[in-house]
Amino acid sequence: MDAARDAALRYTIADGVATVVISHPAKRNAMTADMWRALPELLAGPAADPAVRVLVLTGAGSTFCAGADISSLTGDEDPQALAVAAEEALAAFPKPTLAAIRGFCVGGGSQLAGACDLRFAEEGASFGVTPAKLGIVYPASSTRRLARLVGPAAAKYLLFSAELIDADRALRTGFLDELLPAGQLDKRVAEFTRILVSRSQLTQAAAKEFADGRTGRDAHWAAQAAGSGDTAEGVAAFLERRAPVFRWPTAD
């Protein structure tokens, strides 16, 4: 049986949260060429859907993603170009993104997790960036993103050695935002995404651009804030001790 036939990106929406599941059970959820190609187009849907407030990326079963399935590539394909295009599409997603990680998060899996805004993992997860095992020059954009995330020294350790690190070390380096006990990841992700869904999309969208280093948009976001009514609603809700009903980006 061709294992690639069972490889897919599965996508669902519920309660404002879009969940993308990397599924390739025969290869520990390694990304095939078709999966890399499919991800940017798949992300375009929830990016434009006003019902989606948050995106969660995870892996099927007990593994997040063990990298790229090299056997799925044809001779004329550039595997780095495919991976970088998918990584950049994920990084550019305009709403909060969270990687929910179990098991192996290695190679291309670390690329995808690193492109998310936040990363939660379960105890027992392993992380690695492994191009040095194959003599590959890691993409410049991916290297810079990793260095911004964990710092230059930790990025060099991962890239020079291609060694796996455990979840405790990934948390210490800043690659992870939260580390959960076994069996608690899904509960915590559901709880945290409910919090994100309840917050101001205006605040989140502006903060994401600013934190990611995008410049020249100060006036845009000042105008958005002035016209949205969200600040007035937030203050009123606080004083009235009720949940706010933020309207941006649907405010007239």
Rank of each mutant, 00 (worst) to 15 (best):
L196M: 08
G103A: 11
K133W: 14
A3L: 03
L9I: 04
Y11C: 11
G124M: 01
A226F: 10
A100Y: 01
R241I: 07
A125D: 01
A68W: 04
P139F: 06
P46D: 07
T63M: 09
D76E: 13
L82R: 06
H24W: 02
P131Y: 01
G103W: 09
D212S: 15
Q204Y: 08
A48S: 14
D6W: 12
T203V: 12
A207R: 10
A125K: 02
A99I: 05
G45N: 06
R119Y: 12
Y157H: 13
D230G: 07
S23W: 12
Q201G: 01
A125F: 02
D186E: 15
F175H: 05
A237T: 11
A68K: 09
Y157P: 04
P244L: 10
S198W: 02
D212K: 15
T143Q: 15
S142V: 09
D230T: 09
R242K: 01
F104Q: 14
P46E: 03
L179R: 06
F64S: 03
Q184M: 03
A121K: 03
E178T: 14
G75T: 14
R217F: 12
P40Y: 10
A154D: 07
A147M: 10
A83E: 13
A236E: 11
N29K: 04
Q80T: 15
G107D: 08
L239A: 11
K27F: 00
E163V: 12
L57V: 07
T32S: 03
R10Y: 06
A85S: 06
V189E: 08
A48H: 07
A153C: 00
G124W: 07
F104N: 13
P40S: 00
T231E: 15
I70Q: 05
F246P: 08
A226V: 12
S23T: 06
G135F: 11
A243H: 13
G135P: 06
Y138P: 01
F120G: 08
L98A: 02
T231G: 15
G45P: 03
E233K: 11
D2F: 06
E77C: 07
T143R: 15
G151N: 05
A14L: 13
V235K: 05
R217M: 11
M1D: 14
L158N: 09
G124S: 10
L239Q: 03
D6G: 07
E77N: 02
A125S: 07
V21T: 15
A170L: 12
R28E: 13
L185C: 05
I165G: 00
D49R: 08
I13K: 10
T193K: 04
D186K: 14
T74V: 14
D168T: 06
T193C: 09
S23Y: 01
D78R: 00
L149N: 12
A51F: 00
A205I: 00
R199M: 15
L146A: 07
G234M: 02
S200K: 04
L90P: 00
D212F: 09
A225F: 09
A167T: 10
P96I: 01
S198I: 05
L179Q: 07
N29P: 06
G61N: 11
A113H: 05
E41P: 04
D252W: 06
R53A: 13
Q111E: 05
A162M: 04
V54S: 04
F192L: 15
F238N: 01
Q201E: 13
A243G: 11
A205K: 08
G16D: 08
I136K: 10
A243Y: 00
A223K: 07
T215N: 12
T97K: 08
L39Y: 00
Q201H: 02
A211C: 00
